Computed example of a mutant assay.
Amino acid sequence: MTVTMPLPDAADVAAAAARIAPHVRRTPLLDAQVDGRRILLKLEYLQRSGSFKLRGAVNAILAGPQDLHIVTASGGNHGLGVATAASLLGVGATVYVPETVPEGKARRIEAAGARLVRFGASYAEAAAAAEEAAARPGHRYLPAYDDAAVIAGQGTLAAEIVADEPAVDAIAVAVGGGGLAAGTVLAAGSRTTVAVEPHGCRALAAALEAGRPVDTEIDSVASSALGATRIGVLPYALLSTDSVRSVLVSDDEIRAARDLLWEHFRVAVEPAAATPFAAWLAGRVPGALPCLVLCGANTDWTPA
């Protein structure tokens, strides 16, 4: 597959880190043990907007023209990241979401100040409507993951991990459209990037099997955050390398990992954020000192 758009690199991640520093939180790294095994947990759910998506949104907005209204599409977290970034930076934003968007995420997008438009039954349908709306003068479309500036912004998360604990040898992240995993590859150096997906949202795994991005069916407890039907072109180009390990987990494993995060650490995250922990619990994350990214907590779920 030939990629016509320029790929971001490690220098772009470093530039993004400097650009977004005044607007995002440097989230903590928890050095922990589970069943006698040491792991690192990147507590990104403590980020403004409740997920890592703010990083890419802030970087992309600042890297582009400042006088345009931002339009995007999202299953929830990217939209909330864009809405929050737009509010912080003083620009207008409209977020298209599928009609199946969780109410908690929709409510938070509107509370952040963006205009919310519900359209279609899937992220793909919402994205098509958003791109059409963004074609009007004075508007700009901001992709959720298939964008160099977005990927570089997401890579700042892994850059923080490496800076805080250079001995980490694997970084496990959840994969939807692939922006976070692609950014992780850029910042991880020689470390393994473990790209974790639910069996029911396997856009990257399907692309690696086919040798190119392909459409997939979506059916998972984590689909509101990881429900991209096709991996991004730029993320795929960065993730189809030997430094990346593609891993699948079941919905039951995700639920169990989410519950265990609460039992062990009193951390309440959305299902997507528990997927790296699920992979680690199942023995599918390599390394003597892996870091698991808990990427978001935009959920109304609370333990009984």
Rank of each mutant, 00 (worst) to 15 (best):
V3H: 10
L7V: 12
P8I: 06
P8H: 06
D9V: 12
D9N: 15
D12G: 07
V13C: 03
A18T: 15
R19A: 10
I20K: 02
V24N: 03
V24G: 06
T27P: 03
L30I: 15
D31P: 02
I39Q: 00
I39E: 00
L40T: 05
Y45G: 01
L46E: 12
Q47D: 11
R48Q: 14
S49N: 11
S49V: 03
S51R: 05
F52P: 02
A60R: 01
L62Y: 10
L62M: 13
P65K: 02
D67G: 07
L68E: 11
G76Y: 11
L80K: 09
G81D: 08
A83D: 13
A85W: 01
A85T: 00
L89T: 02
Y96W: 03
V97E: 04
E110C: 06
A112R: 00
G113T: 09
G113I: 05
A114Y: 03
R115Q: 15
F119E: 10
A121Q: 14
S122T: 15
S122F: 07
E125T: 13
E131F: 08
P137C: 06
Y141W: 14
L142C: 10
P143S: 14
D146M: 08
A152L: 11
L157Q: 07
A172H: 02
A172Y: 02
V175S: 10
G176H: 09
T193S: 04
T193A: 07
A195L: 03
A203H: 13
L208C: 07
A210H: 11
G211N: 11
G211A: 13
P213Y: 12
T216M: 04
V221N: 01
A222K: 01
S223R: 14
V233W: 10
T241A: 15
D251R: 07
D251E: 07
D251M: 04
D252T: 12
E253L: 08
D259R: 15
L261Y: 05
E263I: 08
H264D: 12
H264T: 15
F265C: 06
F265S: 07
R266E: 05
R266Q: 08
V267R: 03
V267M: 09
V269G: 03
A272Q: 03
P276H: 06
P276G: 05
F277D: 00
A279E: 05
L281V: 14
G283H: 11
G283T: 13
R284G: 08
L289V: 11
P290Q: 02
L294V: 12
C295N: 03
G296V: 00
T299C: 07
W301Q: 12
T302H: 10
A304L: 14
